[in-house]
């Protein structure tokens, strides 16, 4: 499985407004159902996607999301990549701390989303934007 194969199979959406966040939820829900994630896992993944999409919109100033099915030979799952060209996250550890917020939220978006998925990768640099990639595997 190469990264190229992955991206080709992924659906992409722009995140520019509130409505787009709803669209991201709908896209992820459809994908989650298609790989037969359990109801609880579907709910966790869609919730995580909602948090991260809102982060992309609020903190990243908008961006894109790409989502699709992944397979590692043993099981399948859903991979979602959020990317923005925003200001980036200066202190990642702090941003991943429960309750820390710069946007007036509850500070659960990033840290909470991380707990709801199986794999969570974040790539960020100040001034360069942020890319967050998450995977939820079928049990």
């Amino acid at each position: 499985m190469t990264a190229g194969d992955d991206i080709a199979a992924m659906e992409t959406l722009a995140i520019r407004s509130d409505q787009d966040v709803v669209r991201v939820r709908q896209l992820v829900r459809t994908l989650a159902v298609s790989v037969k994630l359990s109801l609880v896992d579907q709910t966790k993944l869609v919730t995580a996607a909602s948090e991260l999409a809102r982060n992309t919109l609020v903190y990243g100033g908008g961006g894109t999301v790409a989502a699709g099915r992944v397979d590692n030979g043993r099981r399948s799952g859903i991979r979602i990549v959020f990317s923005d060209q925003g200001p980036g996250i200066p202190d990642l550890d702090l941003a991943l701390t429960d309750g820390y917020t710069t946007g007036g939220g509850l500070g659960l978006g990033l840290s909470g989303a991380r707990r709801l998925v199986d794999e969570f990768d974040i790539d960020t640099a100040v001034g360069q934007g942020t890319t967050i990639s998450v995977i939820k595997w079928c049990r």
Binding site: T43, K44, L108, G112
Partner: peptide
């Protein structure tokens, strides 16, 4: 509130 939603909120920390 649906059970799956409640479980997710607990995991989310809300």
């Amino acid at each position: 509130m649906r059970p799956a939603v409640a479980i997710t909120l607990v995991e989310l920390g809300l």
